[in-house]
């Protein structure tokens, strides 16, 4: 829409033969705690950027506030480290003005499912073509151990020392309940091959790809995913040609479920099924309307605008 920004790709052409290495995307040295799951997610994202050959200057990472929201600093792309819970409105504005940019949104569970929950619901409905990663460690880490909506019931924290009072919020069933949501997936940072494959499927999906990434916090919530990490039988892989298939993982994870991601009812059953931790694409429908397409309008030159404005003023002429 912005007249002049349409020029940028022409002024800064991608060379046909240029290829980007993983190192081309490296930003500042990551300052997360040793053992934090975010390191693994950062590595998978860098690998994805290189594999998809996304020009760093045309790639944007938008985040809120929280441990995971430091993400953009550790990449050499454009980054917007904004305010708590509000990454999605910012990403919406960027995408509306600049559909040419590849946009990734990185949020923690507090960011996405608590303070920013309203934006989360509506962003799913807008269905802009962006990748939204929820780095879910079930706890507030940056502010040192407070309960989040996804903290398992009974898990103690500084704000709920006798254990979280309420059953935890299920981000997958919440997302699948939103009209016009077009892609919902779950993966885990301790299964890097699956993480990578899921992010790639998300990036290739046309529409808002919501990926919940189970992420360990070694300091405050190490117990949350302990069982799933230690016992591969707790995990069930959802496989489908239109979802994620990583054959080599099927040697480790014996629970393999054929799940058609076009089937919303089945996706909702999987989301609510707590017998296993399901990894894979629960739902994908690329035909759902995307807000930036619905709202895309032909830009007008200054002269055209002047002519139209005179006509508009005529309506008010005395």
């Amino acid at each position: 829409m912005t007249i002049t920004c349409g020029l940028l790709p022409v002024l800064e052409p991608e060379e046909q033969d240029h290829s980007y290495e993983m190192s081309d995307y490296e930003g500042a040295r990551a300052r997360w705690c040793p053992g934090c799951g975010d390191h693994s997610i950062l590595a998978a994202v860098q690998k994805l950027l290189a594999a998809e050959q996304l020009p760093p200057e045309r790639t944007m990472f938008v985040s809120g506030i929280g441990c995971s929201s430091r993400f953009p600093h550790y990449l050499k792309t454009y980054g917007f480290h904004g305010i708590h819970g509000r990454a999605l409105p910012v990403a919406t504005g960027i995408k509306l003005n600049r559909p040419d940019l590849d946009i990734f949104v990185v949020m923690g569970d507090g960011d996405c499912t608590s303070i920013g929950a309203g934006h989360w619901i509506h962003a799913l409905r807008y269905n802009l073509d962006i990748v939204v990663m929820l780095l879910d460690n079930g706890i507030y880490g940056l502010t040192k151990n407070q309960t989040s909506p996804t903290t398992p019931q009974g898990h103690p924290s500084n704000t709920q020392p006798h254990g979280s009072w309420l059953p935890s919020l299920n981000p997958l069933s919440t997302a699948l309940g939103v009209t016009n949501a077009s892609f919902v997936a779950q993966t885990a940072e301790w299964v890097p091959a699956h993480l990578y494959a899921t992010l790639r499927a998300a990036r290739r999906h046309k529409g808002l790809s919501f990926v919940r990434i189970l992420q360990r916090c070694p300091v405050y919530s190490s117990a949350v995913y302990m069982k799933a990490v230690q016992d591969p039988n707790r995990i069930a892989l959802l496989v489908h040609d239109d979802g994620v298939v990583v054959p080599e993982l099927e040697k480790v994870y014996k629970n393999v479920v054929a799940h058609d991601p076009h089937d919303l009812a089945a996706a909702r059953r999987v989301a609510d099924n707590m017998d296993h931790v399901h990894l894979g694409v629960l739902f994908a429908d690329p035909s759902r309307p995307r807000y930036e397409d619905l709202r895309r309008v032909a830009p007008r030159t200054a002269e055209e605008r002047l002519t139209l404005l005179e006509a508009e003023l005529d309506r008010y002429a005395v």
Binding site: F80, P89, V90, G93
Partner: peptide, 18 residues
């Protein structure tokens, strides 16, 4: 969806261009 988002969207758009 709300006043906050309206401001955020305007800021995102402004940041990225006009």
């Amino acid at each position: 969806e709300d006043e906050i988002a309206a401001c955020g969207v305007a800021i995102g758009a402004s940041y990225a261009g006009k």
